[in-house]
Design a protein around this nucleic acid. Structure first.
Length: 555
RNA sequence: GCCCCUGUAGCUCAGCGGAUAGAGCAGCUGCCUUCUAAGCAGUUAGUCGGGUGUUCGAGUCACCCCAGGGGCGCCA
């Protein structure tokens, strides 16, 4: 990346200054290259001289002046200057910038890629909501963050696998089966009450009716535990069907749907237990088997096998992560969790240590829960009581792209309100359309160019000298930095502000620069600008796709 | 009580230890005979919750306090 090339120039200049005795000898520290906030400060700047003042026993400005005096020429640097209080500012060369349009076009869909991952295998596990009903809106943030993260990591050079963990075992699943059985029996005219703590949503009554239609009364004659097992599997297939559809409505597809039950089907679970036991990480207490996480830095121990003999959820988590790292060999795993599970994180890290794995290989991205509102009123959600707003409703109401953009425009750790009424009202004012509109406008220009028989390949890029052309190109070139930032900090929200700024620079360009001109004298400039448009479209579309959004050709 | 996250413009939020803290929305004022006005330009607006430190330099790091959210189950 260009930053490292600039740092190299600076290091080189320092060395020359030292050889010429204009600077004293000292160990040269790392040279930070940053993006100045103010446009007047150039494209890049280094505050290195501020840090070197002590080492050199000179005023920072003087150091900067000396170093800048020894700066070598480079095709990408148009100008560098030393300024008070001791910065060296760099401005990219206009011609070099213009030529980058060709570089972007050549890279095509790969523009923006960086090699952080060296093709190492990484898994992103997200959504993973209990299969006890349709997805509710709360899962939307998880889905959007996880999916964009997976996209960004792929762009950053990782071999990414997307996974949904299906909690098809455990207590909640049992309750679900009992509740559905009641609804099924009711649909057939039998007065079977819903369990006290069961699921009361209306969707369950519909599922009961469907089961009654599809399977008749045959389950009623079965042994009750057999019938529960059967209705549970039927319900599971129903919910997985809707969950997959809901995800598809958001444009999300998983590489694997991993069944919790499958963890107990081979001998894998016993193997992991033995591993922990032989490491001395298990203890019996009150008839249950505990994972002694407190010995590994966590604040609490955790039950693995309940006193009734059934494995607890943490047992599944252990076996599941063992499977991820050891059986399937992922080098890194990212779990996307709601903040209501944050207390669980230290035990997960402890588990990694107990299994002899570097805890750094497991990253848990926590996002704060979204407070749903309707006309300013907080909407409480619970699948059990049936108070539920489904993800599908919201997607159909507000639109998948708007939901994605909104949820990606804030960092995961920020709490946010999602007012469903407001989202609908504002949808025409939503920034999502601002960005997509820019893309549609570019497409419109390209269409006109094609109509006039102008090609988009031959243009002479050196004709791109207008400040707004260069302003646009400057920002297009930042995509790789954004990908690197988002991937290394696991924070895909950086994409949305980048997209907005990119769209803004295009709109300003559009105002000032006519692309397809009817004046024959402008033909060469038109061709050059059409190439620019093709590159701009590429970068904008790539950014939208990284966010999981569509890049419409018309609006 | 203990642990985690958050507190930045009227509202919703960006902001990798660096220069004069930004955007969108809302408000006000202008701009369509030429590639989409879902656009552009101008304008109003901040003790960065409060305090003390660390540093050449703090919205950013540390500690304390205040406020909001979440967690502290043989639920997941």
């Amino acid at each position: 990346m260009i930053q490292s090339k600039i740092a190299e120039l600076v290091r080189d200049a320092i060395r020359k200054a030292q050889e010429g005795n204009e600077l004293p000898e000292f160990e040269v520290p790392d040279i930070p290259i940053e993006r100045p906030k103010l446009e007047g400060h150039g494209d890049f700047a280094t505050p290195a001289c501020l840090q070197m003042a002590k080492l050199a026993r000179m005023a920072p400005v003087r150091i900067a002046g000396v170093i800048n005096g020894h700066m070598s020429q480079a095709d990408f640097v148009g100008h560098s200057e030393a300024v008070s209080p001791g910065y060296i500012n760099f401005r990219l060369a206009d011609l070099w910038l213009a030529q980058q349009v060709g570089v972007i076009l050549e890279a095509g869909d790969r523009f923006g890629n960086v090699d952080l991952g060296h093709n190492s295998r990484i898994q992103v596990e997200y959504v993973s909501a209990n299969p006890t009903g349709p997805l509710h809106v709360g899962s939307a943030r998880n889905a959007v963050i996880g999916d964009a993260l997976a996209n960004v990591l792929a762009a950053a050079g990782y071999d990414v696998q997307r996974e949904y963990y299906v909690n098809d075992g455990g207590t909640q699943m049992g309750l679900f089966a009992e509740s559905l059985y009641a609804r099924y029996a009711q649909a057939l005219g039998h007065d079977v009450p819903l369990p006290e703590s069961g699921y009361h949503g209306t969707y369950l009554a519909e599922m009961g009716g469907r089961a009654a239609r599809e399977y008749g009364s045959c389950l009623l004659n079965m042994d009750h535990s057999e019938a529960l097992k059967a209705i549970g599997d039927i319900g599971l297939s129903y919910t997985m069907e809707t969950i997959k559809n809901d995800m598809a409505a958001m444009g999300i597809t998983f590489d694997q749907w991993f069944s919790e039950r499958s963890l107990y089907q081979g001998g894998g679970f016993e193997q992991v237990l033995n591993l922990l036991r032989s490491g001395g990480f298990l203890a019996e207490r009150d008839g249950a088997v505990w994972f002694t996480a407190t010995n590994l830095g966590a604040d609490k121990d955790e039950v693995v096998i309940r006193s009734g003999g059934a494995p607890g959820y943490f047992a599944s988590d252990i076996a599941y992560h063992y499977d991820k790292f050891v059986e399937r060999g992922f080098e890194r795993v990212i779990d996307v969790w709601g903040a209501d599970h944050q207390g669980h994180v230290p035990r997960m890290k402890a588990m990694m240590r107990a299994m002899g794995l570097d805890p750094e290989r497991l990253s848990i991205v926590l996002y704060q829960l979204v407070t749903l509102k309707r006309g300013g009123e907080i909407v409480r959600l619970s699948k059990r009581t049936g108070e539920i707003i489904t993800l599908r409703e919201v997607v159909e109401d507000v639109g998948a792209d708007a939901v994605r953009f909104f949820l990606l425009s804030r960092s995961a750790e920020s709490q946010m309100d999602f007012d469903l009424d407001l989202a609908k009202e504002q949808s025409s004012e939503n920034p999502v359309y601002y960005v997509q509109y820019a893309h549609a406008r570019i497409c419109s220009i390209l269409r006109l160019g094609a109509d006039r028989g102008l090609d988009t390949v031959e243009g002479d890029l050196s004709l791109l000298t207008h400040p707004m052309e260069l302003n646009l190109i400057r920002h297009m070139l930042m995509l790789p930095e954004i990908v690197e930032l988002a991937a290394s900090t696991l924070a895909p929200h950086h994409l949305s502000s980048y997209a907005q700024e990119l769209a803004s620079r295009f709109h300003v360009f559009y105002r000032d620069c006519r692309v397809v001109s009817s004046d024959p004298a402008d033909r060469e400039l038109s061709l050059a600008r059409l190439r620019l448009m093709r590159a701009a479209r590429l970068v904008l579309a790539r950014t939208l796709h990284l966010m999981g959004m569509n890049a419409p050709e018309q609006m």
